[in-house]
Structures are given as structure tokens and as C-alpha cells.
Amino acid sequence: MTEKRRDRDSEGRARSARPRDGLGRPLPYGAPGVERQPEGLVRAPGETVREAQRLLDGGRPFHAHEVFEDAWKSGPDAERALWRGLAQLAVGLTHAARGNTAGGARLLLRGAGGIAAYRDRAPYGIDVAGLTAWAGELAGRLEGHGPVDAGAEAPRLI
């Protein structure tokens, strides 16, 4: 049996070097793919929101999730649930666009629940009420349907 080696970074953590498509699905090595988001960037909150919105508008929710994940991992503890919830919304849209509508709906609702506590604060201008409404509405439409167009269904963050 041939041993499969995983791509690793300099610290030994698994990192896939395979190219990915616009929805983050791995492609064969050597295939042309969509440029990935650099991992581990620490951005100002406003920059995080702007970059994620650009990616969402471009139909790349998987990549927006990676931007939110960086904020979740590097931000203050008091904001982790916000960024994690936003990442879950982006992943929910990713799954819905890939055709996993049941999983997409679950993640959309989980993400909406995660950000709901921020509804009265609207941190960084994020429209938490609008996002929770968007997530609930999209999750409701997904049951029994095929993939959605990620760009057409992209939410407005602010």
C-alpha cells in the first residue's frame, strides 16, 4: 500500500497545497484553481468585513469564511462568537451552493444563533438583525432544493 503524505507547513500542521475551485472544493494537483486566501492574517475588524463582503459578492463564500476564521482566531475573546457565527454563515452558504442544502441550512441557522447576541450592538456596522433574517429565510428555502447561486444569495454584512 502506498503511503499518502499530507502537505505540512513549517510547524508540521496539515495544509493542503491542492488547488481549489471557487467554492473551496479541492481540485487535482496541477489543475488551475482559484487563488486562496492567505491564512493567519490579522486584519482590523473593518478590513475583515470589507474583504469578506468582496468575496461574498464574488460568489466565494468559502474564502469569506477563511477571512472570518482569521478574525475569530486572532480577535478578542468577547468577539469570538461574532466572528465564528459569521464564518458559519459563510460556510452555510458554501454548502448550499455545493448542493448540500440540508447541511447548509443547519450551518446558516447555527451561525445566526451565534451572532444573535450582538443584535443590539451592531459591532463594526455589521447588520446582525439583517443577517439573522437572511440566514433564516435562506435556510427555509433550501429544504428539498438543489444548489443555490452563491453570488446571487450573498448577504450584505453592513
Score class of each variant (00 low, 15 high):
Gln53Ala: 09
Ala81Thr: 08
Glu69Phe: 05
Ala71Val: 06
Leu93Tyr: 05
Asp77Ser: 15
Glu69His: 04
Ala78Arg: 15
Phe68Ser: 06
Arg80Pro: 00
Gln88Asp: 08
Val67Asp: 10
Leu82Lys: 00
Ala71Tyr: 00
Ala64Lys: 14
Leu56Ser: 12
Val91Glu: 14
Ala81Phe: 04
Gln88Phe: 03
Val91Ile: 13
Arg54Lys: 11
Gly58His: 11
Thr94Val: 01
Ser74Tyr: 05
Asp77Val: 15
Glu79Asn: 04
Gly85Met: 02
Gln88Arg: 06
Val49Phe: 07
Lys73Asn: 07
Trp72Cys: 06
Ala64Phe: 11
Asp57Tyr: 00
Gly92Asn: 02
Leu56Glu: 11
Gly59Val: 13
Ala71Ile: 05
Gly92Ile: 03
Arg80Tyr: 02
Leu89Glu: 02
Lys73Ala: 10
Val49Ala: 14
Gln88Lys: 07
Ser74Leu: 02
Leu82Ser: 03
Leu93Met: 03
Trp72Pro: 04
Leu55Asp: 12
Arg50Lys: 14
Ala52Lys: 08
Pro76Phe: 08
His65Leu: 15
Gly58Asp: 15
Glu51Tyr: 09
Ala78Trp: 08
Gly85Lys: 01
Gln53His: 09
Asp77Tyr: 08
Thr94His: 06
Gly75Gln: 04
Arg60Pro: 06
Leu89Pro: 00
Gly75Cys: 05
Asp77Met: 06
Asp77Gly: 10
Phe68Lys: 06
Leu93Val: 02
Gly58Lys: 13
Phe62Lys: 05
Ala71Asp: 03
Leu86Asn: 03
Leu56Gly: 12
Asp57Glu: 13
Glu66Met: 13
Ala64Gln: 13
Asp57Trp: 00
Ala87Ser: 14
Asp57Gly: 13
Ser74Pro: 00
Arg84Cys: 01
Arg50Ile: 06
Leu93Ser: 05
Glu66Asp: 15
His65Cys: 11
Arg54Tyr: 07
Thr94Lys: 08
His63Gly: 07
Glu51Ser: 14
Lys73Gly: 05
Gly59Trp: 13
Asp70Gly: 12
Gly58Pro: 11
Ala90Gly: 06
Ala71Leu: 03
Trp72Gly: 00
Trp83Asn: 03
Phe68Gly: 07
Leu86Ile: 02
Ser74Trp: 04
Asp57Gln: 09
Arg60Ile: 09
Leu82Gly: 05
Arg80Met: 05
Glu51Asp: 15
Leu93Pro: 02
Gly58Tyr: 09
Leu82Val: 03
Pro61Thr: 10
Val67Arg: 10
His63Tyr: 15
Ala87Arg: 07
Ala78Phe: 07
Phe68Ala: 08
His63Thr: 07
Ser74Asn: 14
Arg80Val: 04
Leu56Gln: 12
Arg54Glu: 15
His63Leu: 12
Ala78Tyr: 04
Ala87Leu: 14
Leu86Met: 11
Ala71Lys: 01
Phe68Gln: 08
Glu79Leu: 14
Leu93Asn: 01
Arg50Leu: 12
Arg84His: 11
Ala90Trp: 05
Arg80Cys: 02
Ala78Asn: 07
Phe62Gln: 09
Glu69Ala: 07
Leu93Asp: 00
Trp72Gln: 14
Pro76Asn: 10
Leu93Cys: 02
Gly75Thr: 04
Ala81Pro: 00
Ala64Thr: 12
Arg60Gly: 11
Ser74Gly: 08
Leu86Phe: 03
Gly92Asp: 01
Glu69Tyr: 03
Leu89Lys: 04
Trp72Val: 04
Asp57Asn: 12
Asp57Lys: 11
Glu51Ile: 10
Ala87Gln: 13
